[in-house]
Write a protein that binds this DNA or RNA. Structure first.
Lengths: 214, 214, 214, 214
DNA sequence: AATGAATGAGGATTCATTCAT
DNA sequence: GATGAATGAATCCTCATTCAT
C-alpha cells in the first residue's frame, strides 16, 4: 500500500538464485571483516554493503543479528573441530589453531564472552551450541592427566593455598577465555603475540600458530 | 490561591550551584549501575534519568560519552591506587582489590579491553591515562624479583620452550587482562569465582577480595 | 557509538520546551488530517512532517502508533461527551454530533471497527476505554423506553419474526456501527449525506449535524 | 548412485502448465484465508506461501495486489449472483447468502468500503465492476414496491420528517453497507449474530444464512 | 546552573516487485 | 510455466546532542 518497490529505472542486476550460496558466503566473510574492525555491534547495513548485496539478502539468509554472528563463529569452531579431528593431532597443535582464530577474529573472542551480560551475542541458542562444540573439540585432544596452570608443578601446589579445579576441562575453557582476554591490539600480529604470551603465563605450550596444521 | 508566587511553572526547582557537585557524583554512580547491567553502550538518557537530572546536566559535566565512562573508571583506578599506596600493603592484597573491581564493574573490565578494535571505549586520551595509572599502581607494589606464570617455578622453565617476557611488568598487565577475560557471568559472585580461578591458573595468590583493605 | 547526531551545520531552530503543548496539538491535528486521507495505517513520518516537527517529537508524545490514534479519537469522544452533558440536550441532538464526527473523521469510524481482526487500531487498552466512554455518553441521553429499529412500530413486529434485542443500549451501539459502515465517500459532504440516509433507514431522527449544538 | 538423472537440483518440480489453473485457485483460496485473519493489507508473500507456490506465480496470475483481492471478491459476488439467479429465490434468501459472505469474509466487507479513502482496495476498475454486479444481483430479486427502513411502516413516515430515498435500490446498497459496518467480532459466529441483529434493526427479514440456498 | 523538549541522522526491518535459472 | 533469491525504497524507531527557557 505504502511501498514504492522501485520507482522504475533499471535495477543493478539480479544475479539470480545461483548467487544465493555465494551471497551467503560473501555475507559471512564481510561480517567477519566488519566485526574485526567495528566489533559485533557493527551496523548490519555495512555488512550487506561490503558483501555487495542488498539489505534484504542479509535478512533472507540470517533472520537476526545473532544469526549472522553465529554463522561467522560457526566457521571458526568448525575449523577447530577439524583440526582436533585430525590424525596424530597434538593438544598443542589444536591450541595453535585456536590461538590463530583468537588472533584473527574479534567475533571469535566474543564467543567466549557470550554471557548476555554485556550486550554482545545474546544467550542465543546457537551461541550456546557453538560454545559446547568448541569445548568438546578441545577436550577431545586433551592429553590424559593433563592439568592446567601452575598447580601442575611437582612441588606441593597446595602450599600456595590454591585449590585445584573441580573439573580439569573447566579449567581448559577458562584458560581459553583468559587468553581471549589478553588478545587485544590493532593488528592480528599484535594479537597473536599477546596470545602466545598469555599461553606462556599459563605454562602451556602452544604449537605452530596457523589455520591449517603444518 | 494560598499558594505562593509559584516560582515559575512546575520546574523541579533549580537547586542552584551547590547541587553541581552532587549531580556529578550522582551521574557517575548512576552510570556505574547502568553500565553494570547494560554495558558501556547503554543509552546516556538512562544514566541521566537514574541520576535524577536532566540530559543537559550530563553534558555539562561530561562533554561526550567517553567522558562519563572515564569518570566511572577513574573511581576504580583511584581506589586501586589508594590500596596500593597503603602502608604495609602486599601485592596479593592489591590484586584482591583489583579482583573485586573486575568482578563488580563491567566498565572496569572494558578498560582493559580498550583497544578501539572492539567498539568499546575508544582510544580516548583519558582511557590511556587511566590505564597507565592503573599499571603504575600495580607495579609499585610488585615484590622484587617477582615473576609471573609457570616459568617462575624453580625447575628450568626454558625446558618447556617458553621464553620469558622481555619485561616482567608487561606480564603483570597481561595477567590482569587475562583475568578480566575470564570474568564473565551474570552476578558479581559468579564473576568473582571465575576471577579467582583465573588467578589460580596463573599461579598467583590473591589476597582477600574486598573493596577496602582489611 | 554508531550515531551521527548531526554532522554539524545549523539546526532548523529548536523552538524550545514552550512549544511542547503546541506540538502535541499540531501532531493530533496533523494525524487527523492524514488519517482522513490515508487511513489509520498512514506512515507516521508523514504526520510528523505535516505537524512541522521532527520524528522524535512524535515519539516523545506518543510512544506508539496506537497512542496517536487514540489521542485523535479522544478528541472526538470528548466532544460527544460534552454534547451529551449539555443542558437540555436531546437524543437527536447528540446523534447529530455523532454524525458529524462520523462524517469528518476516518479515524473515528475506525474506532467502531476496532476489533483487532482487521489490522486497524489494535485491541489497545485506550481504544477499549474510548469505546466505553462513547457508549456511556450516548446511552446517557437515550430517551426512556426508547427502542431502535422498525420493530418499535405498533403493529405486531413479531409477525415478521424479528426478535427484539436483549439490551436496547446494545442496539444503540450497533446502530452507530451501522451508520459508520454507511459512511463512505470522498468528501465529508458525501459522507454526511450517506450518514443521514443511514439514520433514516434505521427510523431514527437526527438533529442538526454540527460539531457544536446550535 | 542409483538415483536417476536428478532432473535438475532440488527444484520442487515444475508441475507444468496443467498446474496453472490449480495454482490460481490455490492462490485465491489462500488469499481469502489470509485476508480473514490479517485483513486486506496482509503481505503477499504469505499468500504465496500458503498457496504453496512461489512469489512469481502470484504475479503471473495477478499483476498487482488489487487483482488478487478482486479475484477473492469475485468469488463472493459470483455466489451471490448464483443465488439470485436461482428459480424461486426470495429476497430474504439472497440476503441470507449475502449475510453469510459478510460474516465469513473480511475482504467482502472491504468491498463495500472500497472508496479509496481508507487505504483499502483502491478505486480499482474491477472493484467498481464487482460492486455493480453485486448491486444488480441484489436489485434483481427485490420484491416490487419494496421499501427499506422505517418509512415503509403504514403510519405516515413523513410526519417524522424523513424524506424517502430518491432511489430505492440505493437504499438497498446502503443497507448492505450498514450491515457490513455492524459485522465485527473475532469469529464468524460473532459476526453472523451481529449481522442478523443489524438486519433486524433495519426491519428486514433475512432468510437462512448459509453459503448455499436451502 | 538545570531542565527536558526538539532535532534528525542512522540503523533495523519489511515487503512489493523483478528476473535468472 | 515455476521457483524463490535479489533488490532496495520506505517505514519504524532510537538516541546523541543542542538549546530555549
Amino acid at each position: 500500500m505504502t511501498q514504492h518497490p522501485t520507482p522504475d529505472e533499471r535495477r543493478p542486476a539480479n544475479r539470480g538464485p545461483k548467487a544465493a550460496a555465494g551471497n551467503r558466503a560473501a555475507l559471512v566473510a564481510a561480517a567477519r571483516e566488519i566485526y574485526a574492525v567495528h566489533g559485533l555491534d557493527a551496523p548490519l547495513s555495512g555488512i550487506a554493503r561490503r558483501a555487495g548485496v542488498g539489505q534484504g539478502v542479509l535478512y533472507r539468509h540470517f533472520p537476526d543479528r545473532d544469526a549472522i554472528a553465529s554463522a561467522v563463529l560457526e566457521e571458526n569452531v568448525r575449523q577447530v573441530e577439524e583440526a582436533a579431528a585430525d590424525e596424530g593431532v597434538t593438544f598443542a597443535g589444536v591450541l595453535g589453531v585456536v590461538t590463530w582464530h583468537l588472533a584473527q577474529s574479534a567475533a571469535f573472542i566474543g564467543l567466549l564472552h557470550a554471557d548476555g551480560a554485556n550486550g554482545r551475542l545474546r544467550a542465543h541458542a546457537s551461541a550456546q551450541d557453538l560454545s559446547e562444540r568448541f569445548e568438546r573439540a578441545l577436550r577431545g585432544c586433551l592429553p590424559d592427566g593433563h592439568r592446567l596452570g601452575a598447580p601442575q608443578t611437582p612441588e606441593a601446589p597446595e602450599t600456595r593455598g590454591i585449590p585445584a579445579a573441580a573439573d580439569p576441562s573447566e579449567d581448559l575453557m577458562l584458560a581459553v577465555a583468559m587468553v581471549s582476554g589478553a588478545v587485544t591490539g590493532p593488528t592480528p600480529e599484535d594479537r597473536e603475540r599477546r596470545a602466545l604470551a598469555a599461553w606462556r603465563l599459563l605454562g602451556i605450550t602452544v604449537g605452530p600458530v596457523a589455520p591449517f596444521k603444518g
